[in-house]
């Protein structure tokens, strides 16, 4: 092959330098404008009136109560959906049964439902005009406009996260190691704890992480079922909204900075987990 053909081939394998740099510039510009700038604005707005105002805003009883409710919601929903995710992935990847692909589709269903609708359906079940509304008010049980409603809506929204991380992994992994454990005399629990769990732990953590981020950050669904009762049924994202609508910008952005911090921590851990998963 002579030099001229070589250059020709090289030219058809790589873009000209000016195109390369323009593309990089476009990509970077877009990322800066849409991703970096918002993060920066959260910080500057939160500290617009200085440290003291920031601390005061976060120390408000409403903000503290909102943070507490957010943590409580995550504390209930994440473990439940983790157990669900593991069970669903186990049943789907280790057994053959009719309706399996339907089940797999249904597990992903909450992803394609608008958050507002996710909240609405629980109002329809438990609200004053809902299926159980009458019975619930007779027995003085509050679900809608109360913590249980928030938890239920969050459960719905974060339902698929763990399962959808585990299913492809466990499918690909196959069950040979588990069969080996059984053939060596292990019982089901020993097999699961000593063989399955170590093999899926990074994907499991990954799913838990995403599930948690969504559970703490969900706005639309929770907004519908919460009733916005201050210090009672406001989660942190709802507190952000309330403060913003009341023109308490420092308060809104101070709470937002907590949530943005959560997002950053999530992204960092996510990168770490992806790196670990890549390694194994």
């Amino acid at each position: 092959m002579n030099a001229a053909t070589q250059t020709l081939i090289k030219n058809s394998l790589q873009e000209p330098v000016w195109i390369r740099w323009s593309l990089i510039a476009i990509a970077l510009g877009f990322i800066l404008m849409f991703l970096c700038l918002p993060l920066w604005i959260v910080i500057t707005e939160a500290f617009a009136k200085g440290w003291a105002a920031y601390i005061t805003a976060l120390g408000q009883p409403d903000a503290v109560a909102a943070l507490r409710l957010t943590l409580l919601t995550a504390l209930i929903t994440v473990p439940l959906n983790t157990i669900l995710g593991v069970c669903a992935a186990w049943a789907i990847t280790r057994f053959e049964f009719t309706g399996k692909s339907l089940l797999t589709t249904l597990i992903d269903l909450p992803f394609s439902v608008s958050p507002v609708i996710s909240g609405l359906i629980f109002v329809l079940v438990f609200g004053a005009q809902g299926w159980f509304g009458h019975w619930l008010s007779e027995h003085d049980i509050k679900i809608i406009f109360a913590v249980p409603g928030i938890v239920l809506a969050t459960l719905f929204i974060t339902f698929p996260f763990v399962a959808r991380e585990l299913i492809p992994l466990m499918q690909e992994m196959g069950s040979e190691e588990e069969e080996a454990a059984l053939s060596l005399g292990a019982n089901g629990w020993q097999m699961f704890v000593q063989i399955t769990l170590p093999n899926i732990k990074w994907a499991l953590l990954y799913g838990v992480l995403l599930c948690n981020a969504r559970a703490m950050g969900e706005f639309g669904a929770v907004s519908v079922v919460s009733g916005h009762i201050r210090s009672m049924t406001n989660t942190l994202p709802l507190h952000v909204e309330v403060s913003y609508n009341e023109y308490d910008f420092v308060g809104a952005f101070a709470s937002a900075s907590i949530l943005a911090g959560l997002a950053i921590v999530t992204l960092v851990l996510k990168s770490v987990l992806e790196w670990r998963q890549g390694k194994h």
Partner: peptide, 20 residues
């Protein structure tokens, strides 16, 4: 009998060694 009680040793085609 379940595989874990048959008293057999099974060597898998791709060995199925426990990676961790």
């Amino acid at each position: 009998q379940h595989v874990s009680h048959r008293g057999i040793g099974f060597v898998f085609q791709h060995y199925a060694l426990f990676r961790h």
